[in-house]
Design a protein around this nucleic acid. Structure first.
Ligand SMILES: [Mn+2]
Ligand SMILES: [Mn+2]
Ligand SMILES: [Mn+2]
Ligand SMILES: [Mn+2]
Lengths: 149, 149
DNA sequence: TCTGTAATGTAGCTAAGGCTACATTATGGA
DNA sequence: TCCATAATGTAGCCTTAGCTACATTACAGA
């Protein structure tokens, strides 16, 4: 063992090790589902806007190459979020549709909330794309409450 | 080419493909620096609380094994955030200290802001751990403004 | 009907960030 | 002084998520 372990001389609010560890675990868990959330949301958006979701459109919207899209779609199909046949459009399963709806709504609330705080629209959109995945139901409710004045 | 590309029959606010792609790129960029931010913040906290930061303490606080800590520390050392010698404590470089200070302050603002909205402390802490990395300067300023009433 | 080309798919690479299992070192206390 | 053991380090594995380069397919229009 190194040595002292004396009490901290600090004044800053120091989170306990267990709470911080739990928080970081939760953040990593959120990142693990983040890709699924963004993909199903984009697929639902495209289906609504253009009738169907194709790989190129997804690649354009997600800012990645079509190779990355293909690779990820295979994983999401294995996970049961969507179905796809070679050279055909992509369709959400009921499971994927449920997730998409939740994500669309949460996305809108986060963007609206940031804009209500005075954040410019494009910056609000940018920040929301990351923030949304770390907003718990309680926090989302607080955002909605604030929006309703 | 598939076919129609007819105008969308929707009413939902649909973000443009370029804006959404840019937002997602920014989110991925944030995730790339997120580990560095959490590590230097934890190292600064530990240095203050216990005089020095050791691998076991970091592992406990970050909720990962000491192997993961070692691996990541090697990368962060290469990136110039910290210095470490085998079997010795870890120290932040001036570069790392600068980043740590920014992250500590931002973290506190985000937590305080969520709590001010009525989010319970532990949930605020949990969500903040993820949200903080996606809060732009403009949004952080908006949070601070709201805190100052 | 045929075909040029856009869309889609595949092979194979990189890096980050996790892990278990095992090896090595440092040191507090007997 | 010396050693048990906690701390630290290393080897090697996995998954996700990017990429380039190249192969294949589908289909709109000539
Ligand atoms: Mn997102
Ligand atoms: Mn979104
Ligand atoms: Mn964090
Ligand atoms: Mn994130």
């Amino acid at each position: 063992m190194p040595s002292p372990k004396i009490a901290r001389p600090s004044s800053r609010p120091v989170r306990s090790a267990p709470l911080q560890a739990a928080s970081l675990r939760q953040t990593r868990r959120a990142h693990a589902t983040e890709t699924a959330e963004d993909y199903v949301e984009a697929i639902a958006d495209l289906a609504l806007a253009m009738g169907e979701a194709r790989v190129v459109d997804l690649a354009r919207r997600l800012g990645v190459t079509h190779v990355t899209v293909n690779h990820t779609l295979a994983r999401l199909q294995r996970a049961g979020y969507l179905s796809a046949l070679p050279y055909r459009a992509i369709f959400l399963t009921p499971h994927g549709q449920r997730l998409a709806k939740i994500c669309q709504q949460r996305h809108e609330v986060v963007v609206a909330f940031l804009q209500a705080l005075g954040v410019p629209p494009k910056i609000a959109e940018r920040d929301a794309e990351g923030i949304e995945h770390h907003v718990s139901p309680r926090t989302l409710a607080a955002f909605a409450r604030h929006l309703a004045q």
